[in-house]
Amino acid sequence: MSIDPARMAPMPVHRDTDDPLWRKLWSAYEPVITALRRIPLVTNVETSGGMFGITTELTDGSYLWISSVEELPIDPSEAKGFHVKRVHDDTPTIDEIVYDSTLDGEQSEHGNNVVPLVQAIVAFVTERHLALRLTAEETGKRRCACVMAHPQDDDERARVRAALDNALATGDAHAVFVACMQLLPPCPARYEVVAR
Protein backbone atom coordinates (compact mmCIF):
# COMPACT_ATOMS: atom_id res chain seq x y z
CA MET A 1 0.00 0.00 0.00
CA SER A 2 1.69 3.21 -1.09
CA ILE A 3 0.90 6.81 -0.30
CA ASP A 4 1.65 9.36 -3.01
CA PRO A 5 4.69 11.37 -1.82
CA ALA A 6 3.75 14.17 -4.22
CA ARG A 7 0.87 15.02 -1.87
CA MET A 8 3.24 15.81 1.00
CA ALA A 9 3.94 19.39 2.00
CA PRO A 10 7.50 20.41 1.07
CA MET A 11 10.48 20.10 3.36
CA PRO A 12 11.47 23.32 5.11
CA VAL A 13 14.30 25.27 3.48
CA HIS A 14 16.59 27.13 5.90
CA ARG A 15 20.13 26.96 7.26
CA ASP A 16 19.20 24.76 10.24
CA THR A 17 18.43 21.71 8.08
CA ASP A 18 22.17 20.91 8.11
CA ASP A 19 22.43 21.28 11.89
CA PRO A 20 22.99 17.91 13.65
CA LEU A 21 20.56 18.81 16.47
CA TRP A 22 17.83 19.81 13.99
CA ARG A 23 18.33 16.56 12.06
CA LYS A 24 18.23 14.52 15.27
CA LEU A 25 14.93 16.10 16.33
CA TRP A 26 13.47 15.76 12.80
CA SER A 27 14.35 12.08 12.79
CA ALA A 28 13.13 11.47 16.35
CA TYR A 29 9.71 13.00 15.67
CA GLU A 30 9.42 11.70 12.08
CA PRO A 31 6.09 9.85 12.65
CA VAL A 32 4.41 13.08 13.77
CA ILE A 33 6.13 15.25 11.13
CA THR A 34 5.35 12.90 8.25
CA ALA A 35 1.68 12.64 9.25
CA LEU A 36 1.42 16.44 9.41
CA ARG A 37 3.17 16.89 6.06
CA ARG A 38 0.66 14.51 4.48
CA ILE A 39 -2.35 16.60 5.63
CA PRO A 40 -0.58 18.66 3.90
CA LEU A 41 0.87 21.11 6.42
CA VAL A 42 4.32 22.63 6.00
CA THR A 43 6.07 21.33 9.09
CA ASN A 44 9.35 22.29 10.74
CA VAL A 45 11.38 21.65 13.87
CA GLU A 46 12.15 24.81 15.81
CA THR A 47 15.34 24.87 17.84
CA SER A 48 15.58 28.58 18.61
CA GLY A 49 16.32 29.95 22.06
CA GLY A 50 17.00 26.52 23.51
CA MET A 51 13.34 25.59 23.04
CA PHE A 52 12.49 22.59 20.87
CA GLY A 53 9.10 22.25 19.21
CA ILE A 54 7.36 21.29 15.99
CA THR A 55 5.59 23.99 13.99
CA THR A 56 3.04 23.66 11.22
CA GLU A 57 2.04 26.56 8.99
CA LEU A 58 -1.69 27.16 8.55
CA THR A 59 -3.33 28.84 5.55
CA ASP A 60 -4.37 31.96 7.51
CA GLY A 61 -0.80 32.84 8.53
CA SER A 62 -1.08 31.33 11.99
CA TYR A 63 0.74 28.15 12.99
CA LEU A 64 0.55 25.27 15.43
CA TRP A 65 3.28 24.98 18.07
CA ILE A 66 3.63 21.37 19.22
CA SER A 67 5.54 20.80 22.44
CA SER A 68 5.32 18.74 25.61
CA VAL A 69 5.03 20.10 29.15
CA GLU A 70 7.46 22.90 28.27
CA GLU A 71 9.44 21.87 25.20
CA LEU A 72 9.91 18.66 23.27
CA PRO A 73 12.68 16.48 24.68
CA ILE A 74 15.29 15.18 22.24
CA ASP A 75 14.10 11.64 23.00
CA PRO A 76 10.33 11.32 22.24
CA SER A 77 9.96 8.58 24.87
CA GLU A 78 10.74 11.23 27.52
CA ALA A 79 7.85 13.47 26.43
CA LYS A 80 5.13 13.86 29.02
CA GLY A 81 2.35 14.08 26.45
CA PHE A 82 1.80 16.62 23.68
CA HIS A 83 0.62 20.22 23.94
CA VAL A 84 -0.61 21.83 20.69
CA LYS A 85 -1.32 25.53 20.57
CA ARG A 86 -2.42 27.71 17.65
CA VAL A 87 -0.65 31.07 17.62
CA HIS A 88 -0.04 33.98 15.25
CA ASP A 89 3.03 36.20 15.64
CA ASP A 90 1.24 39.29 14.28
CA THR A 91 -2.15 38.70 15.92
CA PRO A 92 -1.83 38.04 19.68
CA THR A 93 -5.57 37.35 19.99
CA ILE A 94 -5.01 34.08 18.11
CA ASP A 95 -3.87 31.94 21.01
CA GLU A 96 -5.79 28.72 21.58
CA ILE A 97 -5.17 25.20 22.81
CA VAL A 98 -5.88 22.62 20.10
CA TYR A 99 -4.82 19.46 21.96
CA ASP A 100 -3.26 18.73 25.35
CA SER A 101 -2.32 15.22 26.42
CA THR A 102 0.11 16.36 29.14
CA LEU A 103 -0.56 15.27 32.72
CA ASP A 104 -3.18 17.96 33.47
CA GLY A 105 -4.45 18.28 29.89
CA GLU A 106 -7.94 17.58 28.60
CA GLN A 107 -6.66 14.59 26.57
CA SER A 108 -4.21 13.36 29.24
CA GLU A 109 -5.37 9.76 28.83
CA HIS A 110 -3.57 9.67 25.46
CA GLY A 111 -0.13 10.66 26.79
CA ASN A 112 2.51 10.19 24.08
CA ASN A 113 0.16 8.38 21.68
CA VAL A 114 0.68 9.99 18.26
CA VAL A 115 -2.56 8.74 16.66
CA PRO A 116 -5.02 10.86 18.74
CA LEU A 117 -2.62 13.82 18.42
CA VAL A 118 -2.70 13.70 14.62
CA GLN A 119 -6.45 12.99 14.59
CA ALA A 120 -7.08 16.10 16.71
CA ILE A 121 -4.96 18.24 14.40
CA VAL A 122 -6.67 16.84 11.29
CA ALA A 123 -10.10 17.55 12.81
CA PHE A 124 -9.07 21.08 13.83
CA VAL A 125 -7.60 22.14 10.49
CA THR A 126 -10.45 20.49 8.59
CA GLU A 127 -13.18 22.18 10.62
CA ARG A 128 -11.55 25.58 10.23
CA HIS A 129 -10.33 25.10 6.65
CA LEU A 130 -6.73 25.86 7.67
CA ALA A 131 -4.96 23.23 5.54
CA LEU A 132 -4.55 22.97 1.80
CA ARG A 133 -7.32 20.93 0.23
CA LEU A 134 -7.23 19.00 -2.98
CA THR A 135 -10.24 18.79 -5.28
CA ALA A 136 -11.79 15.48 -6.30
CA GLU A 137 -10.20 15.89 -9.74
CA GLU A 138 -6.75 16.25 -8.16
CA THR A 139 -7.17 13.16 -6.02
CA GLY A 140 -8.72 10.97 -8.71
CA LYS A 141 -12.21 9.66 -8.09
CA ARG A 142 -11.68 9.05 -4.37
CA ARG A 143 -13.90 11.00 -2.03
CA CYS A 144 -11.27 10.92 0.70
CA ALA A 145 -8.17 13.10 0.37
CA CYS A 146 -6.84 12.49 3.88
CA VAL A 147 -3.21 12.16 4.83
CA MET A 148 -3.72 8.44 5.18
CA ALA A 149 -6.56 7.76 2.75
CA HIS A 150 -9.51 6.09 4.42
CA PRO A 151 -10.85 2.91 2.80
CA GLN A 152 -13.73 3.63 0.45
CA ASP A 153 -15.29 0.15 0.30
CA ASP A 154 -15.30 -3.18 2.11
CA ASP A 155 -12.45 -4.63 0.01
CA GLU A 156 -10.17 -1.70 0.81
CA ARG A 157 -11.14 -1.88 4.49
CA ALA A 158 -10.33 -5.62 4.55
CA ARG A 159 -6.90 -4.95 2.97
CA VAL A 160 -6.10 -2.27 5.56
CA ARG A 161 -7.23 -4.55 8.41
CA ALA A 162 -5.03 -7.35 7.02
CA ALA A 163 -2.10 -4.91 6.83
CA LEU A 164 -2.76 -3.89 10.45
CA ASP A 165 -2.86 -7.53 11.59
CA ASN A 166 0.41 -8.21 9.78
CA ALA A 167 2.04 -5.10 11.26
CA LEU A 168 0.97 -6.10 14.77
CA ALA A 169 2.26 -9.64 14.24
CA THR A 170 5.65 -8.41 12.99
CA GLY A 171 6.01 -5.50 15.42
CA ASP A 172 6.16 -2.88 12.64
CA ALA A 173 5.21 0.29 14.56
CA HIS A 174 5.14 2.57 11.52
CA ALA A 175 2.82 0.23 9.62
CA VAL A 176 0.54 -0.02 12.69
CA PHE A 177 0.43 3.79 12.80
CA VAL A 178 -0.43 4.08 9.09
CA ALA A 179 -3.15 1.42 9.27
CA CYS A 180 -4.69 2.97 12.40
CA MET A 181 -4.75 6.38 10.74
CA GLN A 182 -6.52 4.85 7.75
CA LEU A 183 -9.11 3.01 9.83
CA LEU A 184 -9.90 5.75 12.35
CA PRO A 185 -11.93 8.92 11.79
CA PRO A 186 -12.17 11.87 11.34
CA CYS A 187 -12.33 11.97 7.56
CA PRO A 188 -12.69 15.37 5.85
CA ALA A 189 -14.74 13.69 3.12
CA ARG A 190 -17.56 13.67 5.68
CA TYR A 191 -17.59 17.47 5.82
CA GLU A 192 -19.03 19.79 3.20
CA VAL A 193 -16.53 22.09 1.54
CA VAL A 194 -17.58 25.64 2.24
CA ALA A 195 -16.74 28.17 -0.48
CA ARG A 196 -15.23 31.34 0.92
Rank of each mutant, 00 (worst) to 15 (best):
L184N: 10
D153T: 04
T126C: 05
D95H: 14
L103F: 07
S27L: 10
M11T: 09
E70W: 00
S67A: 15
V32L: 10
K80Y: 02
A169P: 06
T47C: 11
R196C: 01
D95C: 10
A173G: 06
C144R: 07
A169E: 13
P12W: 03
R37K: 15
R196A: 08
R128Y: 07
V115M: 08
D100W: 04
R159A: 14
I74K: 15
V87W: 03
D19M: 03
V114I: 15
A131Y: 00
V160D: 04
R196F: 06
E78C: 05
F52T: 11
A167V: 10
A120N: 10
I97T: 15
H14I: 00
S2V: 02
E30A: 15
R23N: 12
V194Q: 06
K85L: 13
V176D: 05
E70L: 08
G171E: 09
M181I: 02
L64M: 01
D172K: 04
I94T: 10
H83N: 14
E137S: 13
A149F: 05
T17S: 02
W65Q: 13
L184S: 07
C187W: 08
H14V: 00
L21S: 11
L164F: 07
D16I: 06
V193P: 04
I121Q: 01
W26L: 05
T102M: 06
H174G: 12
D16K: 13
T126L: 10
S108R: 15
W26A: 09
V69I: 10
V118F: 14
R157L: 03
Q182K: 13
A162R: 07
D165M: 04
M148W: 11
H83L: 11
V178P: 07
T17Y: 00
S108D: 07
V32Y: 02
N113M: 04
A136N: 12
